[in-house]
């Protein structure tokens, strides 16, 4: 039983990091119907920004998260303006291929020696790892921080989208762009903000990922990015709570597979879940057929 709880906690920790990435996929899809394949690479850049903030500039951990969030928000908005905005009225496949191109560009550019370089780096631990024992289940202070920061960010995002003027405009734009314009909403600006927010969350996810699984390298965004994408589809792409739910399921399924079956089957089972859900419920767990929301 305690082994089960232990694995559940490990799974939730991974799931929360996936959730921070999945939210960006789902928000961007909700608003421009684009799968932003460069999103996993933004997550990677976030991990590096956190790394530099702590290792090179000796900034405290909370500030490192902020640096990564701001840096990634800027990166996300620049990608949107340079790569996707010119294709706003082009066929969707053009934007999709461009997204793959941006992804490959970021991976290979950061792999260069004068950028991040291909060698993996050890992510700094700003404090000693402490383990608390709760009835046979050990929880580290790292897990507590990953849980705390992710939950805080998800609550903040939910509040922002549901209760602020900009959040309301984001939902409006995701439903009907022309009518949003008739309300006086600057649709391009809202799209850019959406990319910024999604990328900031991925940046925070990158720092937490490096913090929890302390090794980073330029291709580290590929797998978590793909898993988070699957999580977003699993929950119902375009739906914010769906991304959170799908990500937690992915994290838990993956961890349980490693713990109870075999760690080599982990990815196969995770993607198998996607196939099953798409067969049974193609719009995802929370998705309603024929309707899409942010």
């Amino acid at each position: 039983m305690s082994y089960f709880l232990q694995q559940l906690i490990n799974g939730l920790q991974l799931g929360f990091v996936y959730a921070l990435i999945a939210l960006g996929y789902t928000m961007v899809y909700g608003i421009v119907k684009l799968i932003n394949f460069a999103h996993g690479d933004v997550f990677m850049v976030g991990a590096y920004l956190g790394f530099f903030a702590m290792a090179n500039w000796a900034l405290p951990f909370p500030v490192a998260i902020l640096v990564a969030m701001v840096g990634c928000a800027v990166l996300g908005m620049v990608i949107e303006r340079l790569a996707y905005k010119p294709l706003r009225n082009a066929p969707r496949i053009s934007a999709l291929i461009t997204a793959m191109g941006v992804s490959l560009f970021i991976e290979n550019f950061t792999n260069l020696n004068f950028v991040f370089g291909p060698a993996p780096r050890a992510f700094p631990r700003p404090f000693a790892v402490r383990t608390f024992n709760l009835g046979g289940v050990s929880i580290t202070n790292i897990t507590v921080i990953v849980f705390g920061v992710s939950i805080l960010l998800m609550v903040a995002l939910t509040w922002f989208v549901n209760s602020t003027k900009t959040g309301r405009a984001m939902r409006a734009v995701s439903m009907d762009k022309d009518t949003s314009r008739l309300m006086g909403i600057d649709v391009d600006r809202i799209i850019t903000i959406t990319f910024g927010i999604g990328s900031a969350l991925a940046g925070a996810g990158g720092v937490l990922f490096g913090f929890a699984y302390p090794q980073i390298q330029p291709l580290m965004g590929i797998m978590p990015g793909l898993k988070a994408f699957v999580a977003a589809v699993l929950g119902g792409i375009g739906i914010i709570p769906g991304a959170m739910l799908g990500a937690v399921i992915m994290g838990v399924v993956e961890t349980f597979t490693s713990a109870y079956v075999s760690s080599t089957l982990r990815d196969a089972v995770a993607f198998g879940v996607l196939i099953i859900v798409l067969l049974v419920r193609p719009t995802g767990i929370l998705g309603r057929p024929g309707r899409e929301k942010v």
């Binding site: 003027k165 409006a172 439903m175 009907d176 022309d178 949003s180 309300m183 909403i185």
Partner: peptide
């Protein structure tokens, strides 16, 4: 062209964006 998933209040608030 209402924003169907939103409340009447939210629709009106959007009108006053």
């Amino acid at each position: 062209r209402p924003f169907l998933g939103m409340t009447v209040r939210e629709n009106l608030q959007l009108g006053a964006f």
